[in-house]
């Protein structure tokens, strides 16, 4: 099977998965109590039947459910994610407006955790049983076992309030109107706390995964063979163990890359980060159906995309896969 066939096959499967998710989400969210018209009218502190009717008509909620589903799916076929009447904007515009912030945050967290995590894991595996192994393992466990929002709040108090080194919330200094490098630096300063907070948890996962995987590979026959052949120990670790141990980590990375979007809900809330995790949560508590479905769609599409990417990397990193696929 060549690469093109493989890709088109995976893409077709991905599209089907996304379609199924879209339908499931559509019914899921309709099962929740309340509707967007009620929420909007309720928040105004003065709802009456006329207003509710006006809003429902406007939101298209008076159509039969299946008609609504059809309209929604038809739109998705042409990448039209619908319109948010609550916010008076197309969903795609809302999502695209917020996506860069999320990608920046999760991307940074992803890099931090991947680099730090695999390095820690590899180090621990090489020193298995020594005190540095215990230290790293303990550190990873601490990262893993502390509730994320707690870390988020504590870091704000310590680093923003007490030490005053970095800002506590937001994406950039509002009203400063920085441009160019100054703006990039400003955003960078704002990025530090949320990215570290979000990254810590995944660092722990990668560290543990890498350590376990390396120890497993270290016991494998081909490594023993390499050792027996007299390959120098550092070379064994680098060329044989680390290279093969990275595969499960790649899988995890593929999975996590997608999950980072969903996992950013808490981080984005606590740090007032204007990304799509918060957009999703707000849309949920406002029953802004079209926005909620749009965010779910985009983040699911990202997971699918990353999965395909992972498979590709797998094929490239490990030629053995091809025979089995």
């Amino acid at each position: 099977m060549n690469l093109l066939q493989f890709l088109s096959g995976r893409l077709a499967k991905g599209v089907l998965t996304l379609l199924a998710i879209a339908v499931l989400n559509f019914f899921l969210i309709r099962a929740a109590p309340g509707d967007p018209a009620q929420v909007l009218a309720g928040e105004a502190g003065a709802a009456d039947a006329v207003l509710l009717e006006q809003l429902r008509e406007r939101f298209g909620l008076n159509e039969p459910l299946l008609t609504q589903l059809w309209i929604y799916l038809k739109g998705y076929m042409t990448l039209d994610l619908g319109f948010s009447y609550r916010q008076q904007q197309p969903v795609l515009a809302l999502v695209l407006d917020r996506l860069p912030a999320t990608l920046l945050l999760t991307g940074a967290a992803f890099l931090i955790s991947l680099v730090l995590g695999t390095a820690m894991g590899a180090l621990a595996a090489r020193r298995a049983g020594k005190w540095s192994d215990s230290l790293i393992t303990a550190l990873a466990l601490i990262f893993y076992a502390t509730p994320l929002f707690w870390v988020a709040l504590m870091s704000q108090i310590v680093f923003a309030l007490k030490l005053g080194i970095v800002p506590n919330v937001g994406y950039e200094t509002i009203g400063a109107n920085y441009t160019g490098l100054a703006r990039a630096l400003d955003i960078g300063r704002h990025l530090v706390l949320p990215a570290l907070t979000l990254g810590l948890f995944f660092t722990a996962l990668y560290a543990r995964m890498m350590r376990a995987s390396m120890l497993e590979v270290a016991g494998a026959d081909f490594v023993k063979t390499a050792r027996a052949k007299g390959v120098s120990p550092p070379r064994v670790w680098r060329r044989h163990v680390a290279r093969n141990a990275i595969l499960p980590v790649v899988t995890l990375a593929g999975l996590q890359a997608g999950q980072l979007v969903g996992g950013a809900v808490l981080t984005e809330t606590v740090f007032a980060w204007p990304g799509i995790g918060r957009l999703m949560f707000d849309a949920l508590v406002q029953r802004d159906y079209s926005v909620l479905l749009g965010v779910f769609f985009v983040s699911s599409a990202m997971v699918v995309g990353f999965n395909i990417l992972t498979d590709l990397i797998y094929r490239i990193a490990d030629p053995r896969i091809e025979a089995g696929a």
Partner: peptide
């Protein structure tokens, strides 16, 4: 396995939030 993958594709924390809200 496709079914399992399907559930792994939806962001899990977001799904949990939606389920509890519903």
């Amino acid at each position: 396995m496709r079914f399992t993958e399907f559930f792994q594709t939806i962001p899990s924390f977001a799904l949990a939030i939606v389920l509890v809200a519903i």
